[in-house]
């Protein structure tokens, strides 16, 4: 059998819960990559992760893992609010090894896994499940998955509602397992900045569909026709965004950060129809590219764009500064 370079090959998935349907026509994830899933609550992130952990079978469609449809043991998942077995920390961490009858150095390996998530094995090994804080419990849950050396590690909101110390420990442990064991990572989060720092690539989910990738901004509808081929949607605090004719009046539009010009002053005499007042929220370096991602708040919605380091310095872009975002109506696109 020829193994291609893909760990996951997803095709034609449809999976419904009541009103909600997750539809993924195609998605491929390369072996050893780190993929982020972002999107608002209820967009289908957790459902996709459950399907990719083989906890549920999709109602239609296929998930091929490593060239077959059996992922047993090689893909493991940590829930947003992980469940600890009602036993000691040691029994939790070693459980996955015990069910495989893998008793070799089991104590030592459990201790290492705990240290990996920055928990002292001397202090924590024999604690009971109810003697842990929320962050510690999450770290124990992660340790009990790391010990399995999975090919794919799926994490659903790993740092949501976690204290800073635990958050840092989780990030470090996840980065370490990727470097050490080339583990493929699939991580969902609605914290884009954080997700950017640990993944190579981000898929956006909106209402059960993949809606763009990377740092694309999603501008939800509904879109209302204003006059001859000009449409608009209203942001939460009243500002309007203009677009050309949408493919579907209710579908979110994608606005690529590259298509946005950031200006200190309100410009006149441009062909772009959107001139929006914004306030800088935060700045994040995009690796070593010399590019900086600027996250701004526009009338109650977050919109990101890129500038170079040089212009950031020149324009003195700092969080809290008032700026203008300028883009064309045709920059808003639909899939």
């Amino acid at each position: 059998m020829i193994k291609n370079n893909y760990l996951y090959e997803i095709s034609g998935i449809e999976h419904s819960y009541g009103e909600f349907t997750l539809r993924i026509p195609e998605l491929k994830i390369e072996r050893g990559s780190a993929v982020g899933l972002s999107g608002p609550n209820g967009s289908g992130k957790s459902t996709l992760i459950r399907l990719m952990s083989f906890l549920e079978k999709p109602h239609t469609g296929n998930i091929i893992f490593n060239g077959s449809s059996d992922s047993r043991l090689r893909a493991t998942m940590m829930q947003q609010d992980p469940y600890l077995l009602k036993r000691t920390v040691y029994d939790n961490v070693s459980y996955g090894l015990k069910v495989k009858n893998d008793y070799k150095d089991i104590k030592k390996r459990s201790a290492e896994a705990l240290e990996r998530v920055n928990l002292s094995h001397i202090k924590f090994m024999h604690r009971k499940w109810f003697e842990l804080s929320g962050g510690e419990a999450k770290r124990v849950a992660l340790a009990s998955r790391l010990i399995l050396k999975p090919e794919a590690l799926l994490l659903d909101e790993p740092v949501a509602n976690v204290d800073t110390e635990s958050s840092r420990a989780i990030i470090n442990a996840v980065k370490w397992t990727r470097e050490e064991h080339s583990t493929t990572l699939i991580i969902s989060s609605h914290d884009l900045t954080w997700l950017n720092s640990v993944t190579d690539h981000i898929w956006k989910l909106y209402n059960g569909k993949l809606a763009g990738s990377g740092n694309a901004n999603l501008i939800p509808g509904p879109w209302i026709e204003e006059k001859n081929n000009l449409w608009h949607t209203t942001l939460p605090e009243g500002a309007k965004i203009y677009s050309s004719e949408p493919s579907d009046c209710n579908a979110p539009a994608i606005l690529h950060p590259h298509d946005i010009i950031l200006s200190e002053k309100k410009l006149t005499g441009t062909s772009a129809v959107n001139h929006l007042e914004a306030r800088v929220n935060l700045l994040a370096a995009e690796g070593n590219s010399g590019r900086i991602r600027v996250e701004t708040e526009v009338s109650g919605r977050i919109i990101s764009c890129y500038i170079t380091e040089t212009s950031a310095v020149k324009m003195n872009i700092i969080p809290g500064k008032k700026v203008y975002l300028i883009f064309k109506a045709t920059s808003l696109v639909w899939d």
Binding site: R50, L55, T76, M78, P82, Y83, Y95, G96, V99
Partner: peptide, 14 residues
Amino acid sequence: DERLKSTLITLGAS
């Protein structure tokens, strides 16, 4: 807890 079963499957239990 309904998460118990998912957790056990995830940890590779038969």
